[in-house]
């Protein structure tokens, strides 16, 4: 009986950790800067989390099948670069480029499954492909996002600031897609026990290709939202997303293997990682050490997760 209770306690801890971390950080930020506790304050604090949420959902799709995507940052940068160069002048060509990019992702997924390649090496290679394409498109930082996109991202949403609406939308979308749907069950099955999924008769190649295509789609969305916010792009604009998205998924309760992911947790994780970065500026950490602090936050996040996992195993 008591072991059951302990198990339940650890499970609750597992589920509320992302929300707990987010509230603690929010409280800390509001304490340092009470004026942030307003529509505009929250908008300013969490605006940058919007693209990151979708990039994290992309990473979550890949982690759900027990792979890792080391190319999502450069991919979002590429999508943003396309948004700032081709989209305003030649929208049809831009759409074609997006479709081609998503197809390339799907192809990578199919290759990884059919040839049993390590996803890490393939996506590391892909990251250079995306970066190369982005540099070809935008040799120097610049470009201009189309007006409709920048005004959409600057739209003043009713009742709640846009990042909150977007978080609700992303979490609901991910929850329906991955946690509730039959497709989501298959995806997590592929991550946990591919042999079983194959024995039931599903084509693993098509399944993994579909998962990668979805990740690509989320990546394109992230890139468009990012370029809508910044109005111009550069080939390295989102390179830090690779690591931060992984941290968001893991902080949100996902695991590296076994097909355990939580879309709601991932979105909360993305919000938390963004807030952690703003909190550092509030604390006035010297610029020399900001990179290191990011690393430290990552390590603390992953360490907390590891500690809870260990508790779960004991309980």
């Amino acid at each position: 009986m008591s072991s059951l209770q302990a198990k339940r306690g650890v499970l609750v801890l597992h589920n509320i950790l992302p929300a707990l971390a987010l509230s603690l950080l929010l409280a800390a930020v509001f304490w340092r800067q009470p004026r942030a506790m307003s529509y505009f304050g929250v908008n300013l604090l969490l605006n940058l989390a919007i693209p990151l949420m979708f990039a994290s959902l992309a990473q979550m799709m890949i982690l759900a099948v027990s792979d890792l995507d080391l190319s999502i940052g450069p991919f979002v940068s590429l999508a943003a670069s396309i948004g700032a160069t081709l989209l305003p002048t030649r929208p049809a060509l831009a759409m074609l480029a997006f479709v081609a990019a998503v197809a390339a992702y799907a192809l990578a997924g199919a290759l990884i499954e059919s040839r049993r390649l390590p996803s890490i090496v393939v996506t590391l290679g892909l990251s250079f492909v995306w970066l190369g394409c982005a540099v070809l498109l935008l040799p120097t930082p610049g470009g201009l996002a189309p007006d409709w996109l920048s005004s959409a991202m600057a739209y003043r949403t009713p009742w709640l600031p846009m990042p909150i609406w977007m978080a609700l939308f992303a979490a609901a979308l991910g929850h329906v897609l991955v946690t509730r749907s039959a497709f989501g069950t298959l995806v997590r099955g592929l991550g946990g026990n591919p042999t079983a999924v194959a024995r039931v008769g599903w084509s693993l190649v098509r399944l993994r290709a579909g998962v990668y295509a979805l990740a690509g789609l989320f990546g394109v969305l992230a890139g468009l939202m990012l370029v809508g916010q910044t109005t111009s792009a550069d080939p390295n604009i989102a390179s830090r997303y690779t690591l931060v998205s992984i941290a968001a998924v893991i902080l949100g309760g996902g695991k590296f293997v076994g097909g355990y992911v939580s879309p709601v947790g991932t979105v909360v994780g993305a919000l938390t990682m963004t807030l952690a970065a703003s909190f550092l500026t509030f604390l006035e950490v010297a610029p020399d050490w900001q990179v290191g602090m990011q690393g430290l936050i990552l390590i603390v996040v992953l360490g907390l997760r590891a500690a809870i996992d260990r508790l779960e195993r004991i309980a």
Binding site: A108, V121, F128, V129, G132, C133, A134, P139
Partner: peptide
Amino acid sequence: GLRMLLTGLIIIGVIV
């Protein structure tokens, strides 16, 4: 740009 693109493609090509 082209150099990075080709490097990436070659790496993927080699492991395939």
